[in-house]
Amino acid sequence: MKTIDQPTLSSFAPTGVLRVGINLGNPVLANEDPISKNLYGVTIDIANEIGKRISLPVQLIPFKSAGATVDAVKTREIDLVFVAIDPVRGADISYTPAYIQIEGAYMVKVSSPLKTNDEVDAAGNEIVVGKGSAYDLYLTREIKNAALLRAASSQTVIDDFMSGTGNVAAGVKQQLESDAKRYPGLRMLPGRFMVINQAIGIPKARANYESTSAYLSNVIAELKQSGFVADAMKRHNIQGAKVADQ
């Protein structure tokens, strides 16, 4: 097990507490108990394991979207985030290798003439996406003809869609499948439009961030190889995702 030296640790967690941004916009990663408000999920398990390894208390700070979590990195409110790897975010964030891969999918109403993913990027189509999400950033680069309509968060995409916004909803496949149970008359387009690689990110603004990133990358490799990530996914009943390739 690789250790972390004191200068790197002091830069990594300057307050003496590991402040971890938790993205509640993706149910594959984390969730909040509606009664107790306790956070649970794969990312919480990983965060606590990192805290144990570096002998620091962990403070879990929930956010409603990935975009809000990334903003908190830029303002130095948090020390570590669990977000999708994306080159735009990479300007400010240093990533570990991915620990989980998630599929991005499209959902339409049953009455829609759209049958395949390839048909979505056409003039006249309007795709509802969660603002600042990994698939928002991806589709912003890739979509050439359709329009993107941004919902406040990933959780509100289908609510906006069902209220009359757009004719295609885009998001994490598991989130869309869960939303389809709340609303009748929806169907998923087959396959996926992207694979979302989820990783740990730390702010590049910190001194010694390269050493911290190398340490965390080693931890992620160990957690994948040991079965820790797979066990966490099984424990939290995560479907529609897989442990990222070694």
Rank of each mutant, 00 (worst) to 15 (best):
D92F: 06
L24M: 09
R53G: 08
I100R: 01
G41L: 01
E32G: 04
V42H: 09
K64N: 15
A30G: 04
P57N: 00
L80T: 05
S36P: 03
R76A: 13
V58H: 06
V42K: 01
P34E: 02
G41N: 02
T69H: 00
V73W: 04
Q59K: 12
G67K: 11
P97W: 06
A66K: 01
R53H: 12
N26A: 12
G25C: 05
G25I: 00
N23H: 01
K64I: 08
P62H: 01
A66N: 10
A84T: 05
G67D: 08
R76Y: 11
L39N: 04
D86V: 11
V20L: 07
E77W: 09
I85Q: 14
G25F: 08
R89G: 06
I44H: 01
Y95H: 12
I35L: 15
Y95R: 02
Y95N: 07
I50T: 04
I22F: 09
A98F: 05
S55G: 02
Y40C: 00
A91T: 05
T96D: 11
R89Y: 11
T75I: 14
T69E: 04
N48M: 14
E32Y: 02
D33Q: 07
Y40P: 00
V28C: 08
E49C: 10
G21I: 06
Y95A: 02
A47Y: 07
T43F: 04
A68E: 13
V20I: 04
I85Y: 12
G90A: 14
A91C: 02
A30L: 14
S36A: 06
V88F: 13
F82P: 01
N23Y: 06
E49M: 03
D45I: 15
L60S: 09
L24T: 04
L56R: 09
I100C: 01
F82N: 00
Q101M: 09
L39Q: 02
D86W: 08
A47K: 03
R76K: 14
F63I: 05
S36M: 06
G67P: 04
D71V: 00
K37F: 14
A68R: 03
N31L: 12
Y99S: 09
V88M: 14
E32M: 12
I46E: 11
G90Y: 08
I22D: 03
I22N: 07
S36V: 00
D79V: 05
S36F: 13
V20E: 07
N23L: 00
N26L: 08
Y95W: 02
R53F: 03
G51E: 02
A72V: 03
G51L: 05
R53N: 13
A47C: 15
